[in-house]
Design a protein around this nucleic acid. Structure first.
Lengths: 138, 138
DNA sequence: ATAATTTCGGACATTTTTGTCCGCTTTTAA
DNA sequence: TTAAAAGCGGACAAAAATGTCCGAAATTAT
């Protein structure tokens, strides 16, 4: 579904979000430890998220990553996925046909469409905040 | 969603199925041409399908691939996907968490579950025959 | 029998994804 | 002011997925 990079990105964002709600900043090392991901690779992914204004970073000692209160509530899962995996999950024929559309649908077109719409709804209507809350309570 | 290999596998099977209904056997070359896939790579994938008894092959001139009438009606999409991609599409946490289950669900667990169930239903209830028919009529 | 045509399987090659290393810059605290 | 602690970015490395090549085996037609 999502690439490994994207999975790490989501997990990292959620962990940062949880900590940010307690006014705590988190270092890359702590993040990688918490979400069980390779540190350097995770660092790369966090950069993508920083560049997309999904999370914010501060250098130096006491530095680290955090997510702004506003972003917490407004940023949706779709934005994270988009930043890392692009829109590949939402486009293209499920069977890889170049010529597949409403007029010339592949044999799975309609069923794929329904599933994609559900997926899209989930991505676009789930905020970081909602997910972080669930994560804290589990 | 599916790997490239799996996409080729499905497209190839469908093309063979359509031809088989006209009592025609198809060569690898024709298949690769028809479904616009790399020939040698497609050959490998067809072998997997042959070994899984989804399609059948005959060597020598006038040889090629075909799918039995019975398989046409009884083999479901899930069997093709399983043969090539395994069950990776159906298992594991969407966020890649090792510890994600009904008792300790990840924040997307329930929504993923619904989508997966739809996907599973589609895979297990779509036969090669149904798809081949749709393909012919488009 | 022989040549041609096809599948089959192993080895190899390329590309993409995943992951690592290291030196640089920024910032803080002593 | 200096040392330490953090993020940043570029180059490199490993693994996985995708794709190619070629020779062997089987089968058919001549």
């Amino acid at each position: 579904m999502f690439s490994k990079a994207c999975e790490y990105g989501i997990r990292a964002t959620l962990h940062i979000a949880v900590e940010s709600q307690q006014e705590r900043r988190v270092s890359l090392k702590d993040i990688a430890l918490a979400i069980d991901s390779p540190e350097a690779f995770t660092g790369k992914i966090l950069q993508q998220l920083v560049h997309n204004n999904i999370i914010h970073s501060l250098k130096g000692p006491t530095g680290g990553f955090q997510v702004e209160q506003l972003d917490l509530e407004q940023t949706t899962l779709s934005k994270i996925v988009e930043a890392i995996d692009g829109n590949s999950i939402m486009v293209g024929c499920g069977l890889g046909l170049k010529q597949c559309n409403e007029k010339e649908p592949c044999p799975l077109h309609d069923q794929f469409k329904i599933i994609r719409e559900q997926l899209k709804y989930m991505l676009e209507n789930t905020t970081i905040y909602e997910m972080a809350i669930k994560l804290e309570h589990r």
